[in-house]
């Protein structure tokens, strides 16, 4: 066995959950406490590094920047200054293509918090919920509606149609705004702003969504990711991304393990044996499906076309012996 092959075997046999837990922890510290270490990754990150975490954040979520820019008066937005918006999209794209939706599965602090809540539920022994196929089909549209509103409302503010208090509408309902600053001992986002009717409505909505977030994430794995407009935006840019999830249909036995471990309940991952590019708009690229697949080479993650992690029988057995508890 060559050195390369032995490295590849070691990677494929990795205790994936443990690896992912520590990687998520690393990114959580980087994005939530990065400012403490003088780290600044900019304002165009394709993940929920919340801008309301003012002092400590190591970077900022692009959705906040995008909404701020779209709020510019139209005269400015549709002038040379509009190039700034395009530049921002370009920087976002450069960040995004490196990890594709892996930003959701490995980097997103809000996603990580949901995984911790799932661990808490698992520890209590309470079973988790799943959507029916009909519910799934209906609810999956919500993230696109939120994305459209997130773009149109700021544009409307710039055009003078909407009240300025509606600015950053998605941030106002995002649970990241209320939860992430708390990790830096900033609880100011847990209040209702009575300064105007719009502010009051938006902050009430924001705290209601936060309440739903805790309930939802407790009974449903990655509850919020299913409605996340960042996920929808990711999907629009995902075609040229470097990290990809591929399926070799001829090697698939349709055992359904991948579907069972999928936090997002993506049925197509098990059912579709014709499509090579198996990533869908709901996928968070956590790669748990690859780790749970017993068929050698049936599922694999590639980076710029090079396989970096693929399903193997040996890896599957090793992980099962350690107790693969994701299906709980």
């Amino acid at each position: 066995m060559t050195k390369l092959e032995s490295i590849r075997t070691a990677v494929n046999n990795v205790q994936f959950n443990r690896f992912r837990f520590w990687l998520q922890m690393f990114f959580f510290v980087l994005l939530v406490y990065g400012g403490f270490f003088a780290i600044e990754l900019g304002k165009h990150l394709p993940t929920f590094a919340c801008g309301y975490n003012k002092e400590l954040r190591g970077g900022m979520c692009y959705l906040m920047t995008l909404q701020h820019q779209l709020e510019w008066p139209w005269q400015k937005l549709f002038s040379v200054a509009g190039l700034t918006v395009l530049t921002s999209v370009g920087i976002f794209f450069l960040w995004f293509i490196a990890l594709n939706k892996g930003w959701c599965g490995f980097v997103c602090p809000v996603g990580t918090i949901q995984d911790w809540i799932t661990s808490l539920r698992r520890w209590t022994g309470i079973r988790y919920s799943r959507y029916s196929w009909g519910q799934f089909q209906w609810l999956m549209q919500i993230k696109y509606v939120l994305l459209a509103l997130m773009l149109l409302i700021p544009l409307g503010i710039g055009g003078g149609w909407f009240n300025n208090d509606l600015k950053s509408p998605f941030c106002m309902i995002c649970p990241g705004r209320t939860i992430i600053p708390m990790f830096g001992a900033d609880f100011s986002q847990l209040s209702i702003d009575f300064s105007s009717k719009v502010n009051m409505t938006m902050t009430v909505l924001g705290l209601s969504v936060t309440g739903l977030f805790f309930i939802g994430a407790f009974v449903k794995k990655r509850f919020f990711c299913f409605y996340c407009p960042m996920g929808a935006l990711h999907y629009l840019f995902s075609k040229p991304a470097l990290l990809r999830l591929k399926k070799e249909g001829s090697k698939c036995t349709r055992c359904g393990d991948c579907f069972r471990v999928c936090d997002q309940e993506i049925k197509i991952i098990a059912d579709d044996v014709t499509r090579k590019e198996i990533m869908t708009d709901d996928c968070i690229m956590c790669l748990k499906c690859v780790a749970a697949c017993p068929e050698p080479g049936a599922l694999k993650a590639t980076f710029a076309g090079i396989p970096i992690f693929e399903s193997t029988e040996e890896g599957f057995i090793k992980r099962m012996k350690k107790g693969h508890t994701d299906v709980k």
Binding site: F194, L207, I215
Partner: peptide, 22 residues
């Protein structure tokens, strides 16, 4: 113009009644 009591109250209300509903 800001109220923590209302904010926490609404958040807890949603958690308690949401949990009960589930």
């Amino acid at each position: 113009y800001r109220s923590y009591a209302w904010g926490l109250g609404i958040g807890l209300f949603v958690i308690v009644f949401g949990g009960l509903a589930v």
